[in-house]
Design a protein around this nucleic acid. Structure first.
Lengths: 335, 335
DNA sequence: TTGAAAGCGCTAACAG
DNA sequence: CTGTTAGCGCTTTCAA
């Protein structure tokens, strides 16, 4: 692969001049010379070595993104937002999955340090005490987290407590009293917040909370199916189920079907996230919408702002919205 | 951020020695010295600068991945496979979406050249003549494509023609004669192959092919819905629809519902890919399974093999499988 | 077993 | 406007 040296030789200029035209340096370069260099570059199909550039400039135009799992449409959508924005800004994104494993998180952070990523975006809030993230504080790298975290970093957030409350209130308004909750993984901060919202809403409506009304899943349809089955086989079967994400809601609806129960006929169902398929599922899913794509673009934008602007907003909040669809269509009359 | 220089100074050894212990160089280092260096590195939380390393070694331990769209669960699953394998092998992956736009593909290839990615994995076969990919031939980078392409690169492939044939034959065996096809984007090589399989199967069964039986979508549920509606509103309504991916199949099923038609009661539906939700959708979707995750790991493995082994298999084939579920449950009696 | 020195490909003063 | 020079942080001969 050709180097700037090669270009300089062939264009009969110094390597410095080549550098200047490549970087559109403010330092003026004669028009004729510039054209000649440009032509040579094109002829040789020369591309500057980003490693060498980064070594000097201390900027790699790379951001690292750490998420639990790209197969989850929720994260895929966030990543899409990040990437679109990154593309616009000339950044490349390195993606890493953690499956919420602490050791992998740490390993990925090290990698991003070694590669001198300009910034790191961390999504999928987790509870692991202070350690892994706090290590980042010392770094010169820009950090943005999506969601709530133990450590105080610039953040893009959604009101998960409020979102869950919205969902439960909707169910209560429909007449439901026996409402169950399928929660997400315990290390997840969203799980904690959504459970909180669930409890708040019950309390506000004078409905007693019981532990057995809550099952835990790992955000997959499988786990939603499993949790749904257990819930629906309880003697005092719930009339409504709220799931911590749409994928688990789909699983639970499936479980209902297998038990001969229809949604929304025998059971109301509410999800969380509003992934693309929620409006195509049968029945279409009532859910609490999170603007995932915008979460991604906002986080990336923050990373960019941190470079230039010191007075950028450290926190950005997004409001969840309740989308009422067919899975909660029926009012409850009995009871 | 501390450098090897700093470590050397503090450990009272030469920078060379530090390098040797970091790289586990075959060149022997005294045990005591090594321990001391290691201790110092830990104390200072030193991480070698990958840019500097790459500049010299000409290896970045980075692969670029180019796909149409990470929000599509099909690609998300492939990417997951690539990443898991990359993690195991110590590679980082840079991900780029193209939305099947030629200019973006070219732009991303340039980026990977500048960043000196060791390899590039290209998924989502496209038809753009020779140009963008052929430019890659000259590169020192290792290239692997997933799917069929115009240019001959090491590849991981699936028999799309055979897969489509499987689907149609299943429908014919069920008694269907008026079978429609919702195809994918025209630049996509899979679309071409699946259409071919569709035609082949019809021919084999003596069913005439008509252009109007084929609609084109862009692989989203929305486009499947649209295409489904058009197909189902034809005077001689089809009794079965085959979609080029599961997402469009979901959309088409939704369209059927809106028209008061039930699947599989009034209409049989077959998809392609077997994304995770296909077995949770209502009805569960009969589909042609593609081992997406394995496609990803295989491609990444190939990239790795290309580094060490010159006799690696340039082509790897995966067989699609038909998964029969509820969306094709009913036999056709009328007609 | 250790270190000195050269240089990967580029940018950034500093002169001219 | 153009070029010379000194590194960026590391690996790799080559000596000692």
């Amino acid at each position: 692969m050709s180097t700037m040296q090669d270009v300089a030789l062939r264009a009969k200029v110094s390597i410095t001049t080549v550098s200047r035209v490549i970087n559109n340096s403010p330092h003026r370069v004669n028009r004729v010379t510039r054209e000649r260099v440009l032509k040579t570059i094109k002829e040789m199909d020369f591309r500057p070595n980003a490693l060498a550039q980064g070594l000097i400039t201390k900027r790699t135009m790379t951001v690292g993104v750490i998420i639990p799992d790209i197969s989850n449409p929720y994260y895929a959508e966030i990543v899409r937002g990040i990437q679109d924005r990154a593309d616009d800004e000339g950044y490349a994104v390195i993606l890493q999955n953690t499956d919420r494993k602490l050791e992998r998180i740490i390993q990925h952070i090290h990698l991003f340090r070694e590669k001198r990523a300009d910034g790191i975006i961390f999504s999928g809030g987790i509870i692991h005490g202070y350690e892994p993230l706090s290590a980042l504080r010392e770094l010169s790298q820009r950090i943005v987290v999506i969601g709530r975290h133990e450590v105080d970093f610039p953040a893009v957030r959604v009101d998960n407590i409020g979102g869950a409350t919205l969902a439960i209130q909707h169910l209560v308004d429909l007449g439901h009293q026996r409402i169950c909750f399928i929660n997400g993984p315990e290390m997840s901060t969203s799980s904690i917040d959504r459970l909180q919202g669930f409890k708040n809403a019950l309390a506000q409506n004078g409905i007693p909370f019981e532990d057995r009304m809550v099952k835990r899943g790992n955000l997959t349809p499988e786990s939603g199916y499993q949790a749904g089955r257990e819930l629906l086989e309880m003697p005092d079967r719930p009339t409504a189920v709220f799931a911590s994400n749409d994928l688990m809601a789909f699983g639970a609806i499936h479980a209902a079907g297998d038990l001969g129960l229809s949604v929304p006929g025998d059971l109301a169902m509410v999800g969380f996230d509003n992934i693309q398929l929620s409006s195509y599922f049968n029945p279409t899913l009532t859910t609490v919408e999170i603007p995932m794509y915008n979460l991604g673009t906002a986080a990336m934008k923050m990373i960019v702002n941190m470079a230039s602007d010191n007075s950028f907003d450290r926190y950005q909040w997004f409001k969840p919205r309740l989308l009422i669809r067919h899975s909660t269509q029926n009012k409850v009359s009995r009871e």
